[in-house]
């Protein structure tokens, strides 16, 4: 097999996202990553729902399904059950994945189907032209909330952790190096890999993640989670996060020893990852990176294992035996 390159994953369709949309950066990163995974192109499938991000499969030159609003997850689940050796990616957004598809989202996590799900979170409905979304901050004024949205935003990371996801991560469209690392780890994780990407919508919610995306302000507003390492951040890496009772707080490394700084552990009980999920700008640095990563048997493998066990115990199904497995009686030829 000849080595695959980025170009092998670029389809002949013209990309139709708005100029400046954060989706371009994600598409480019994924197309760059896939050749490095060593998976044959025909084994890779992208499944999406509806929304700006969900046009993604059309721009990829492998198998793909652009489905209906909110339903990429069940479609991908059925695909994996039928064909467990495929490498399946779900592309969704904050409306598609958390609102209309919210139910499927949590059940995917608890099942731990072996697939990757990337949620492009721009905190707005783009394709329907700018209504507030389930992740919009409270009070956001949009065409459907002229006096400000009333709802508490959903926290996708917290939901994923609550639903017992085995891989939960966050990255930022403008932070290419970090996105590459996170996507690579997600791709290599066995089980459901959930990645939230802060993604800028230039038209309807421009700058929603400016604090985290801008290289100049990012170091002071974001903390990069690394397994086994303390939560240190800041341009000069002079600040840390310490636990005060159950509350994280910012401390200066000038006055506090590094030993007191909270250390990340990806395999810890979910309470730690949940605590990180509650750290929000501007009160605390917002964590990016892998919140949680652990091994648990995958749903598709277990489905296959039950089939194998059934065959082992009962032998390959025999229709004749099945039909006769009841009280039978003969009607003689008259």
């Amino acid at each position: 097999m000849t080595e695959l390159t980025r170009k092998d994953f670029v389809s002949d369709q013209i990309v139709r996202w708005c100029p400046g949309c954060g989706d371009y950066a994600i598409l480019a990163q994924v197309q760059k990553l896939l050749p490095e995974l060593g998976i044959p192109r025909e084994k890779i499938v992208f499944v999406s729902g509806i929304g700006c991000s969900s046009r993604f499969p059309y721009y990829m030159n492998n198998y793909g399904v652009h489905s209906i609003h909110g339903r990429a997850v069940p479609i991908a689940t059925g695909l994996k059950m039928a064909h467990p050796d495929l490498n399946v990616w779900v592309i969704t957004g904050d409306g598609d994945g958390l609102s209309i598809g919210g139910n499927h989202f949590i059940h995917l996590m608890r099942r731990n189907v072996d697939l990757n799900i990337i949620l492009f979170n721009n905190r707005i409905y783009g394709l329907t032209k700018g209504q507030y979304s389930p992740t919009s901050p409270q009070g956001l004024k949009t065409k459907s909330s002229p006096m400000g949205s009333l709802e508490q935003p959903l926290n996708p990371i917290a939901i994923a952790i609550g639903a017992e996801a085995t891989f939960v991560a966050r990255t930022i469209d403008g932070h290419l190096k970090h996105m590459a690392q996170v996507l690579e780890r997600a791709a290599k994780h066995k089980g459901t890999s959930f990645v939230e990407i802060y993604q800028n919508c230039v038209i309807f919610n421009d700058g929603a993640f400016k604090y985290a995306a801008d290289a100049a302000t990012r170091p002071d507003n974001v903390v990069e989670l690394e397994h086994g390492k303390p939560l240190i951040f800041g341009k000069k890496r002079d600040k840390g996060v310490r636990l005060n009772g159950l509350e994280p707080e910012i401390v200066s490394l000038a006055t506090v020893s590094e030993k007191e700084i909270l250390v990340h552990n990806e395999t810890a009980p979910p309470s730690l990852a949940y605590l990180f999920s509650q750290m929000h700008h501007p009160h605390l640095p917002e964590p990016i990176g892998v919140f949680r990563s652990l091994e648990r048997p995958t749903y598709d493998a277990q489905v296959q294992a039950q089939v194998d066990t059934a065959i082992q115990l009962k032998g390959q199904g025999d229709l004749h035996k099945l039909f006769y497995d009841a009280d039978t009686w003969q009607v003689p030829q008259v």
Partner: peptide, 24 residues
């Protein structure tokens, strides 16, 4: 009847059930 190469999926709702069938 899994030994007949049957897989069953008890979905989270009716919509997921048809979705999984489409994927399969």
């Amino acid at each position: 009847l899994k030994h007949f190469n049957v897989r069953t999926f008890q979905a989270e709702d009716e919509i997921a059930a048809i979705g999984a069938a489409i994927g399969a």
